[in-house]
Design a protein around this nucleic acid. Structure first.
Lengths: 251, 251
DNA sequence: GCCGTTAGCTAACACCGTTCACTGGAACCG
DNA sequence: CGGTTCCAGTGAACGGTGTTAGCTAACGGC
């Protein structure tokens, strides 16, 4: 058994860790310029001067490799969002939230293949049917939670600063109440049910619009989703009571 | 050259049409119980006692077959939605819209594989990058337009009956205005820009929620999306001014 | 220096999409 | 009726895939 202490990394272990990194990094490059379907084990191996079976020393299957790449991508995306949040000026929750939302779309549109892997229809690996809630401790699940926490925390802060209108608990259907309560219990901070309800509703709109744009399901109406995105952002700002001066302006 | 008249279907042509039907039908069955990745030409051929190369007499590639299956699925889904709309009692636009939205979710959750093919991230076939707008005349595009028209027409009718609040033209960003105008021009009926804006916004929410549910991206928070769907439906009813008595009730 | 562990290889299996050359039979024409 | 043309469907083959089994060779710890 390997030690849980992180200090005694043997020479071999370091080499192994390096190889793992290189594989994931190569896989990501292949993903980007070959597409999801072109993300083949053999292609990854070829790209780094190995043969496909060699990869099985590091990942138990293609699915396993993909899952680890997904976790890394979640982390990378989260890093970007956190950096944008922390660089936002003024550093008010409202403006930070808008900036993060824009950065999310920006990342999605400039990393289409990666976005498809994270948020598309082929992401059975992220949240498997068997673990009812996505709160296991596999890397991809932890990374997913970290990602979600960025938005959740910002909405919570916005609400803390300016109490935007939320439905009263008793105005939420009981069946939805218990689910929201269960979810709340897993969050680091306690939030009123109405707030998480509004957060979920806002996230649905952001996710829906960005997905439609990236997956090409918006082209029936728009050829550039940018203006529509800003309009939706403005609508969300109103819902969340983001102060006028930080809101995207109407035309 | 074959005649454009539809009467003189030779014996051969009828047999051919039957085979095409059987192939698509078999492909759909394979899709359902093997998943999108399991939708292999060889599997389809095997299932119907043929060999894979034989299918090339009917479809020029796997992609071609999939595209035709997608078109059929769009048609089937649209038929379901239209039937639900026409069977809605009372037959008011508001209630019809709610019924159709529920039927859409119902179809999506009971036909996950098919839904993923139509609305997921692997739908490059439906709207290709090259045709800027999805208004070509390939079967899949026609079917897609027919699908969208169901929702669009209902929203239009709801607005005709009760003028829910829409943004004034001059409150829409110019860049978005021209896009919406272009799209409007392709619709069968003339609609105020504000109405199509609201329609698009509502469709984003419906699409976003159903996609998240079907693709498993909602499991981080909810294990049954039903109540949240009804809550969103209620929110949309308020946006669209659907009369109180047809709205989903608050808790 | 020995010995266990392990990285990486080759070969192989079963599958995939696709092309090609071919056969059998149906449809058409004189 | 015979001859010819067309076409559905086949088997073989090519190059690709994920994955397993068995081997070699090098490395780390004693």
């Amino acid at each position: 058994m390997t030690e849980l202490v992180d200090e005694p990394l043997s020479r071999r272990d370091r080499a192994r860790a390096d190889t793992v990194r290189e594989i994931k990094q190569t896989a990501r490059r292949v993903l980007v310029d070959q597409g999801v379907d072109g993300l083949a084990l053999r292609a990854v191996a070829r790209e780094m001067g190995m043969t496909a079976p060699g990869l099985y020393r590091y990942f138990s299957s293609r699915e396993d490799l993909v899952e680890n790449v997904v976790a890394d991508l979640y982390d990378e995306l989260t890093d970007v969002l956190e950096a944008v949040r922390d660089a936002a000026d003024p550093a008010t929750p409202g403006f930070q939230l808008l900036s993060v939302a824009r950065a999310f779309r920006q990342w999605a549109t400039t990393h289409r293949a990666e976005f498809g892997l994270l948020f598309g229809s082929s992401a059975q690996g992220v949240f498997r049917p068997d673990d009812v809630h996505g709160d296991g401790d596999r890397p991809v699940q932890l990374a997913g939670q970290r990602f979600g926490a960025v938005f959740a925390a910002l909405v919570a802060q916005v609400h803390l600063e300016r109490h935007f209108p939320v439905p009263a608990e008793e105005d939420i259907e009981p069946a939805l109440q218990v689910q929201l309560r269960n979810w709340c219990a897993k969050l680091p901070v306690a939030l009123p049910l109405g707030v998480v309800h509004v957060f979920l509703s806002c996230w649905i709109r952001l996710y829906g619009l960005v997905c439609m744009e990236v997956f090409g399901h918006l082209r029936f109406a728009l050829d550039d989703a940018g203006p529509m995105f800003e309009a939706e952002l403005r609508a969300l700002s109103l819902v969340l009571g983001v102060p006028e001066e930080y809101r995207p302006p109407a035309a």
